[in-house]
Nucleic acid binder design. Structure first.
Lengths: 136, 136
DNA sequence: CACGATTACTTGTGAAATGCAAGTTAAATT
DNA sequence: AATTTAACTTGCATTTCACAAGTAATCGTG
């Protein structure tokens, strides 16, 4: 029942650690939703374009929390809701997401041009804004 | 038998495109091996620390080629070998890998400190060197 | 306070991906 | 000609994923 994380990484390479934490088809999209769109609840994540299944979303949120990338706490105003937030570790993923967005936008036909142009114009400022927003 | 790539992405978001191409536990490690270590053959990839299985490696190489991230050609000196190289699209992934390495190194206990320090000292020069090396 | 709606999950089940071991083919080396 | 090497392929057990349905706690409304 309870999933165990591996006690140690497959190798000591930092890239391997990243891949073991984030190398799947959903984790980075959840973080995008938090970072760029300001999503914070289960239901909001479910509403994203990619249509994640509820059991997968629940499992990924738990994983990300175990890895210290996000934090979960009850909503004080509405006890049904869980509020998910980025930790410092999670906020530090912004440059990774930014580079992945720029790469795909440069080589594939993609939408979301507002975000892409903003990144192309001034990536550093974009990253500063995300940090600032989350440190409030 | 023959795997079909999805005709269209799950969504138009560029991050989703990146995740669909690279969001698994092996693709980025193969690219790391090419980019950082200079590996170019099936056997070299097999020798990496993370111990990929031969069928998975074959499938991933095919995928990466289909996506235009790497190119495969026969070795003219040794007809048994296939030489895998990065395309321009593949070389452009260097910033993504660099940010993932820096992130993991900042938040996890990892090895490969030589690479990490080099990136921390001067990421831009590191990226220039990779480009230069691959454009020869 | 009863009752329907909402939120965040959990469970069941079939399909697909993964991992391991072994086998195959073509080309080079001895 | 026989052996070795490189790059796969195949078979099979295990794990993960995806879809649909169900459930428990909490909330808003009459």
């Amino acid at each position: 029942m309870s999933k165990k994380r591996p006690a140690a990484w497959r190798s000591g390479c930092p890239l391997n650690a990243s891949v073991e934490m984030l190398g799947d088809r959903w984790s980075l999209l959840i973080l995008r939703d938090m970072m760029v769109r300001g999503y914070r609840t289960f239901k909001e994540f479910l509403g994203s374009d990619e249509k994640i299944a509820t059991n997968i979303l629940a499992e990924r949120l738990k994983r990300l929390e175990e890895y210290g990338i996000i934090a979960a706490k009850r909503d004080l105003k509405d006890g049904r809701k869980t509020i998910y937030t980025l930790t410092a570790k999670g906020i530090d993923l912004a440059p990774v997401l930014a580079e992945m967005v720029l790469w795909a936008a440069a080589h594939e036909k993609t939408g979301n041009q507002a975000l892409v142009r903003q990144l192309q114009r001034d990536k550093e400022q974009f990253l500063r804004e995300i940090k600032k927003r989350w440190n409030e």
